[in-house]
Simulated assay, not measured.
Amino acid sequence: MPLPQPDDLTSLVLRTDFGDEKAWKSLRVALDAAGDYPHATCVSEVRFAGMGVQALMAEEAAAHEDEQIVYMFLADAAAMKDPGHPLLAVDLSDEPGRTFRVPARWFPDISTNLSIANMDFAEFADAADESGTFRGFDEG
């Protein structure tokens, strides 16, 4: 079964951690507060519980080419526990499996640029700091 499709001009945020409903709500509030317009298509389906990057990549690779997505963001345990909600960005196309973290505050910048193909996943991943977290081009 293919991964869910994001709405136009948004990015898929896929919940994989289901241990704390309050944290999920907090993460969604943080994403909504980070920009003036919706940037995320948030999907909370229990079938994705605990799935890691490799399993999700395999599921996406099995989908018909017309249904495949290029990148996604995971709301995993680390994103749920940290107050900055650092989502795990995952490349599914150019360098499948390449990842970096992005706090909710930077999510709109990345989502916008990726959804309109203004920038590539690698540009953000290359700008991540030594911890693997993107904190903007001026601060990273």
Results as ranks from 00 to 15, higher is better:
11 S>G: 13
63 A>I: 07
20 D>G: 03
2 P>C: 01
108 P>R: 10
8 D>N: 13
128 A>D: 06
23 A>M: 11
131 S>D: 15
43 V>G: 02
138 D>P: 04
62 A>K: 07
94 D>Y: 00
1 M>K: 10
78 A>G: 08
85 H>D: 14
19 G>F: 05
5 Q>E: 10
124 F>Q: 05
97 G>H: 13
96 P>R: 02
89 A>D: 06
90 V>P: 01
97 G>W: 01
115 S>C: 12
127 A>P: 03
25 K>L: 12
91 D>G: 07
9 L>Q: 14
140 G>P: 02
118 N>Y: 00
14 L>V: 03
139 E>H: 11
74 L>F: 04
54 Q>L: 00
73 F>Y: 13
70 V>E: 14
72 M>P: 03
110 I>D: 04
70 V>I: 10
136 G>E: 15
54 Q>G: 00
27 L>P: 04
17 D>W: 00
13 V>E: 01
32 D>A: 12
47 R>N: 06
98 R>I: 04
75 A>L: 11
128 A>P: 02
106 W>G: 09
43 V>R: 02
116 I>Y: 12
37 Y>I: 11
57 M>Q: 15
138 D>I: 09
26 S>R: 07
82 D>L: 05
95 E>I: 01
49 A>K: 09
14 L>M: 04
16 T>Q: 04
33 A>T: 14
137 F>L: 10
63 A>V: 01
1 M>Y: 04
92 L>P: 06
91 D>M: 07
29 V>W: 11
26 S>Y: 06
27 L>D: 11
133 T>N: 06
109 D>N: 11
121 F>Q: 02
94 D>K: 13
82 D>C: 09
68 Q>T: 06
98 R>Q: 13
121 F>M: 08
44 S>C: 09
77 A>N: 13
106 W>R: 15
3 L>N: 06
37 Y>A: 14
11 S>T: 09
139 E>K: 12
83 P>W: 09
44 S>W: 02
8 D>G: 10
52 G>I: 10
106 W>V: 10
99 T>A: 08
45 E>M: 06
93 S>T: 01
106 W>S: 13
36 D>R: 14
10 T>L: 09
72 M>I: 10
109 D>V: 07
107 F>E: 06
1 M>Q: 11
36 D>I: 08
105 R>S: 14
33 A>H: 11
31 L>N: 07
116 I>N: 15
66 D>Q: 07
132 G>V: 11
46 V>Y: 00
35 G>Q: 10
85 H>N: 15
80 M>N: 04
120 D>Y: 00
31 L>T: 08
102 V>E: 08
17 D>C: 06
74 L>V: 01
130 E>G: 06
135 R>E: 13
86 P>Q: 15
127 A>T: 09
110 I>V: 15
43 V>P: 01
94 D>V: 11
105 R>I: 09
69 I>R: 14
4 P>M: 02
47 R>Y: 03
18 F>R: 03
14 L>A: 01
57 M>D: 09
98 R>C: 09
81 K>V: 06
91 D>K: 08
